[in-house]
Computed example of a mutant assay.
Amino acid sequence: METLAYNTNLFFAALMFFILVVLFSTFKILREYERGVVFMLGRFYKVKGPGLVIVIPLVQQMVRVDLRTVVMDVPTQDVISRDNVSVRVNAVIYFRVIDAQKAIINVEDYLQATSQLAQTTLRSVLGQHELDEMLANREMLNTDIRAILDSRTDSWGIKVSNVEIKHVDLNETMVRAIARQAEAERTRRAKVIHASGEMEASAKLVEAAETLAKEPNAILLRYLQTLTEIASEKNSTILFPLPMDLLSGVLNKEQNPQSTPAKKP
């Protein structure tokens, strides 16, 4: 009797354990950002969640899918630009699953697949542009890469929301070459600005000369103004140009002394 009672208790304990295991595997709780892709006998049944989900053991299986935005760092890639410059570029992509069924059925591992696709797309897109475009037009490149990734991952139920190129690393030789190029460009701009200033100044001087030529006394007033400016600087020596028109009468008298009338006795 004791043996029978012991076996009965052991049977009931095993039965209770089995029932708990079945209940634990039957009831699933999915969070608000999770969905469950349910398969029945290996075939797709439906997408369930969030909340309490009932899965029949041994008949149905469920795969959890996270619908939150995934931030994935694209490893550094060696890229040769269209002008044959070797650079190292890395980026970050933001995407999320919008169709859990496609993300599980159409691709084995959507995270790994998206990462590999992002690396190849980054190399192919940047290889079609020159180095100056990589450095100056990052927004355009980000848009192009995002559009390509979004179109290619649409069959996987993935939406790529943003792509950002983080760093474009150059070797020391290219950094020095770019520095020399920038210095030459600044020198060229300085020369152009200086030449433009000289041309504008010469045009203004011509206008001033034409204005002064209309009134002879204007040049004398300009001389006096210049003398006032020089005197304010407290110089010990002042050179003042004297117009020849003021001395024309004296010079004519010296050159023609016979024209001087004789004195009466």
Rank of each mutant, 00 (worst) to 15 (best):
K264H: 10
D99F: 02
T121V: 03
Q258P: 05
A179D: 04
S202N: 12
M134T: 05
N137M: 04
L220Q: 11
K264F: 02
V125M: 09
T143K: 14
N217Y: 05
L20V: 13
Y110M: 05
I219V: 14
I158T: 02
I178T: 06
H167T: 14
H194F: 08
N217R: 15
E183G: 09
V63L: 08
L205P: 04
A203S: 04
S25V: 10
L251A: 14
E229C: 13
T76R: 03
V55M: 06
Y94F: 09
D150L: 11
E233A: 12
G249L: 11
Q61T: 07
T211V: 10
E34Y: 01
A118R: 06
L10A: 05
M244H: 05
N9M: 09
I238A: 03
M134C: 05
R152M: 09
L41A: 07
V97L: 01
M1C: 10
L149Y: 03
Q255V: 06
M40V: 11
R138K: 08
M140H: 13
R96G: 05
S161N: 08
S248M: 11
V79G: 04
I148K: 14
M40I: 02
K159R: 10
Q112P: 01
R146E: 00
K214G: 02
R31S: 09
S81R: 01
M134D: 00
F44P: 07
V125I: 08
E198S: 08
S115W: 06
A195K: 06
L220M: 11
I178L: 12
I145T: 00
P265N: 07
M134I: 04
V192S: 06
S155T: 10
E207C: 01
Q258K: 13
A218C: 02
N9Y: 04
D73K: 05
I105E: 00
K159L: 11
E229F: 09
D154T: 11
L205H: 15
I29N: 07
F39R: 00
T121G: 03
E2R: 10
R176E: 10
R189D: 09
T226D: 15
E183F: 12
F12Y: 12
F12C: 10
L221C: 13
S155V: 15
A231G: 10
K191G: 09
S161Q: 08
S236K: 15
I19H: 14
